[in-house]
């Protein structure tokens, strides 16, 4: 088994990959980064989840890019087709491809990070860096809240179906059922939140002052050095790219 990467190491890698891809603005690189993210996801066994979530986020985004830039790109010269004011230009399509692949690469990289990072490790690492514990708590509970709400909704639906509620396939029927499920759901969530807040207060969560961490997340010197190096290299690559694309003929 490979030694575990510190959450900050994977976070640094993800942020640098996204930063460099954005700065490079070179679609073959974007495609390569996206493919690498998928390959790594497959190796960690989360390819299905990464691709599903990616599709939900990226499909509407890429379609809108295609419509916006593919059809309406004022700078476009090479007209491939035209319907009234809408012109499909090669430049427009190229721009949409550029932007689409870049966004895809960034989204996939961050999805890979969020599906593979150990949340407890991340929260503990954040707490160790004097980041307010409330931040870590919110981060961790956003990830635990969704399954909890889904589980409760399922129980409410079962209880209500048992009382003779037939949920049909139609949209109206589903919306009607949803309305009846919302009342117990919201009441229960408010109730839960109230008692959880009292318990957290009693366990000292609200008190100011320093904190310690029971969970130890190993952060070997090699990984710290690696992070620093990656950050420096990424910054250098971005800087070089900015200098290179600086308009040459700007009068000084």
């Amino acid at each position: 088994m490979t030694p575990r990467l510190h959450p900050f190491t994977t976070l640094t890698l993800a942020a640098c990959a996204a930063g460099v891809t954005t700065a490079a603005a070179y679609w073959p690189l974007s495609v390569a980064v996206a493919l690498a993210a998928v390959a790594l996801a497959a190796r960690r066994g989360v390819a299905g989840r990464v691709l599903t979530a990616g599709a939900v986020i990226l499909t509407p985004l890429c379609l809108s890019l295609l419509v916006l830039h593919g059809l309406f790109f004022p700078e476009g010269q090479t007209v491939l087709a035209q319907w009234g004011p809408a012109r499909v230009t090669a430049e427009g399509l190229g721009f949409a491809l550029e932007l689409g692949t870049r966004t895809t690469a960034c989204v996939l990289v961050f999805l890979l990070f969020s599906f593979t990072v150990s949340v407890p490790d991340l929260v503990s690492a954040l707490a160790g860096r004097r980041i307010p514990p409330q931040f870590g708590f919110v981060l961790a509970s956003t990830l635990t809240l969704l399954p909890a709400v889904a589980g409760r909704l399922d129980r409410i639906r079962q209880a209500q179906e048992t009382r003779g509620m037939v949920v049909g396939r139609g949209l109206l029927s589903r919306l009607g059922a949803l309305r009846l499920q919302m009342v117990p759901l919201v009441l229960a969530l408010i109730d839960d939140a109230g008692s959880r807040a009292q318990a957290l207060d009693a366990r000292g969560f609200g008190s100011p002052g320093p904190r310690t961490s029971y969970r130890e997340v190993a952060d070997p010197p090699a990984q710290r050095l690696f992070r620093a190096a990656v950050l420096v290299l990424a910054a250098a690559a971005v800087a070089r790219r900015i200098v290179a694309s600086w308009p040459a003929g700007v009068p000084s």
């Binding site: 150990s118 949340v119 407890p120 509970s141 959880r196 957290l200 366990r203």
Partner: peptide, 21 residues
């Protein structure tokens, strides 16, 4: 309702109150 719900193991949940202190 007593649990923090953000700790991964029983040991960490037990320690939660001590960490905050």
């Amino acid at each position: 309702a007593m649990l923090s719900s953000v700790r991964a193991t029983v040991a960490e949940e037990l320690a939660f109150g001590l960490e905050n202190r």
